[in-house]
């Protein structure tokens, strides 16, 4: 059985529209394989190339070079075979008919996915319930909140009973509770044997729902890992923010093994950056011993992890 998604050396270049604009290499020889039934995260900051890859896989954009297949069908040549198999959810509020109700939107898309009318009605009903829009199904989309539109998008992506789902930032604008429900839903979809490619810049989201995660930045794949090892990577780079720590204490901490930097912040506090596992505990112990209790630990932003990772592997940024 072919893999659900195969990407081989895909490059996508956007030629400048105006002379003064620069040529953009959105994807640079990207290769990626997603076996059937996997939930695969595509993690990267804005502009990393996530959306470009999702668009190419969903047949609405051509690669400049390289090949991509969905369930063994080429996304450039065999669009007729690919399209019935895929469902797409693009992020943002657009992409719905605002003047139509949620139910009417889903019925329309159901027909475009060639479902018979009775099946369309039935699927629309169950999907609306599934994404928690059953009460608001007959209201016009223009009256929906951002999060509701986002959930309708998700239902739209599911209406065709797709084997492979491409989700591009599907939780943008959702409140935390809806976000949690969304993650439960992803779990259910996996249980149904669907393959999901989830593009996101939210590390927690990627960590909680994905089987494997691919880190992408500036069009290049940096790493493909399981979230556990990714979480490992991330938690290694913890940081500790303190207030009112005496200078000598900070000096001793800076000398500890596994502490990569101690910097003074503008408000008189300090940030201690840790790059080895276990070092955080030692840092915290020293601080508490010195009577410093205004302490906060946090994870670095995704971009910071990239810099660390890329730096470690000696790749060119």
């Amino acid at each position: 059985m072919p893999d659900a998604v195969e990407v081989e050396d895909v490059t996508r270049v956007f030629e400048p529209r105006k002379k003064k604009d620069e040529r953009v290499v959105a994807l640079d020889e990207v290769s990626l394989t997603i076996p059937e039934g996997e939930i695969h995260g595509l993690l990267g900051p804005n502009g990393a190339g996530k959306t470009t890859l999702v668009k190419i896989l969903s047949t609405v954009l051509l690669p400049t070079s390289g090949r991509a297949r969905v369930c063994g069908h080429d996304v450039v040549e065999e669009t007729k075979a690919v399209r019935p198999l895929i469902g797409i959810v693009f992020g943002g509020e657009r992409g719905l008919y605002w003047r139509l109700t949620g139910r009417q939107n889903l019925e329309y898309w159901g027909a475009l996915y060639r479902l018979p009318p009775a099946a369309v009605r039935e699927r629309t009903r169950t999907l609306l319930e599934r994404v928690g829009l059953a009460d608001r199904a007959d209201q016009r989309v223009e009256q929906y909140s951002r999060g509701m539109k986002q959930r309708l998008h998700l239902a739209r992506g599911l209406i065709g009973d797709a084997k492979v789902l491409f989700l591009d930032e599907p939780t943008t604008g959702m409140d935390p509770i809806a976000g949690r429900e969304f993650r439960t839903l992803i779990g259910e979809l996996k249980g149904e044997g669907r393959t999901i490619l989830l593009a996101t810049h939210d590390m927690v989201e990627a960590e909680t729902v994905c089987d494997r995660v691919t880190l992408i930045d500036r069009g290049k794949i940096i790493a493909t890992e399981s979230p556990r090892s990714l979480g490992h990577v991330i938690s290694r780079f913890q940081r500790v923010d303190v207030e009112g720590a005496p200078e000598p204490v900070l000096g001793r901490i800076a000398a500890l093994e596994g502490v990569s930097a101690v910097t003074r912040t503008e408000d008189g506090g300090a940030r201690i950056e840790v790059s080895e596992e276990g070092a955080t505990a030692e840092v915290l112990r020293r601080l508490v011993d010195a009577g410093v209790t205004s302490v906060r630990t946090s994870l670095p932003s995704l971009e910071e992890v990239y810099v660390q990772l890329i730096g470690e592997r000696g790749l060119e940024v």
Binding site: K55, S58, T59, V60, K80, R83, P84, I86, I88, F90, G95, W109, A111, L112, Y113, R114, R156, G160
Partner: peptide
């Protein structure tokens, strides 16, 4: 884009 990506 979503319309184009459907089989219709």
């Amino acid at each position: 884009e979503p319309v184009i990506a459907t089989p219709t």
